[in-house]
Design a protein around this nucleic acid. Sequence first.
DNA 1: CGTTGTGAAGGAGTTCACAGCA
DNA 2: TGCTGTGAACTCCTTCACAACG
Lengths: 217, 217
Amino acid sequence: MDEGRRIPQATVARLPRYLQALVEASEAGTLTLSSDDLARASGLNSAKVRKDLSFLGTYGTRGVGYNVAELTTEISGVLGLTDDRAVVIIGVGNLGSALASYEGFDRRGFKVVALLDADPEKVGTEVGGHVVRDVAELDQVVAEHDVTFAVIAVPAANAQDVADALIHAGVAALLNFAPTHLTVPDQVTCRTVDLSTELQILSFYEQLGDGPSAAVG
Amino acid sequence: MDEGRRIPQATVARLPRYLQALVEASEAGTLTLSSDDLARASGLNSAKVRKDLSFLGTYGTRGVGYNVAELTTEISGVLGLTDDRAVVIIGVGNLGSALASYEGFDRRGFKVVALLDADPEKVGTEVGGHVVRDVAELDQVVAEHDVTFAVIAVPAANAQDVADALIHAGVAALLNFAPTHLTVPDQVTCRTVDLSTELQILSFYEQLGDGPSAAVG
DNA sequence: CGTTGTGAAGGAGTTCACAGCA
DNA sequence: TGCTGTGAACTCCTTCACAACG
């Protein structure tokens, strides 16, 4: 209930994994999980799990473990997943189209409210249950649906311009799939996921013949 | 030229960014870049850039900067990007199809040699210039093309089985897009990229009204 | 008795600040 | 003079080990 603590970045990056393990446990009818159970499900060790969860407060019971329902609620709350969040996807190429049809968004409370593209050929077509709108309507769409999240799936050359437009429109969080660094003001959060970067990192460890498994984005 | 050094994980994860900045500089006709130039292009600071590059050896010239061509070769070499690597994609759903058509792979020396799926309806169809093959042919495909990399784009429930089959077939590096932790032996490298995890992390920092921008996978 | 919660120790990564070299 | 390369300080994260407690 209290929120005085500052949660370390590394811990924040792992909370989604715990959440997923909790959801799976819940679906399987499990009522409590020990730090060791959570560790095995997430590929971590139990000390790390306990330390991470201790930053959220005291939710475990000694000798028993963590209550699945209670911890699920707590982590969801900390991550800000209690209300649905409106998301727009910019760029309806291969990746943008795939993301538009991805069910994982809705399942976690992220509601895709619009797809936008600059290509007149694409505007008006239907993709993943949405009619593609013109990127020029961005401000309007953002205001209309109170959009806070955007997914950038445009070519690298246009990504910074798109980001600037999104920020101007009032979007506060960007998930960037363009293989380029985006410069954003402090109050805007941006994460970049680059597939070829991932493969290159993989390549390094592969040629080493061994490497740290795992890795969240 | 020497390779006695152990390169820190954090540095490895940033090398692709430098490589990208170098390629862009090269295309723009720039011959040298200072650590400060590289820092600005990658959204880092110059001390970090210099420290990172110092792990590769001594490639800079004091008072001048780094030779673009030379450093490009060096980083490519360290990442093991000198030869083309054969990649298979397992799972031809929305995401798998998008990845099959993604040009970023080829551009970095990763050659998609086959798409595989378990669904008989999909086997035989053409996606991104490849005829989809049956996942039962996995061993054969891997042997045929000397495949070392695989992209897993199947539902979470099947991901571990697919990973096991890939490892059995001799694949050494996995890029997993299924939202689940995969257990792999030490000599196999696995990275997981989960879109909804990314959004959840984003959500945390968004509600904070501020956060660390950037983030490679 | 089993499992959490946590100080303390240890390790990794970042930043500082400047000597050293072109 | 300008920029690299790097020891040293610092901050952040992980692991250990055990007291506290249901």
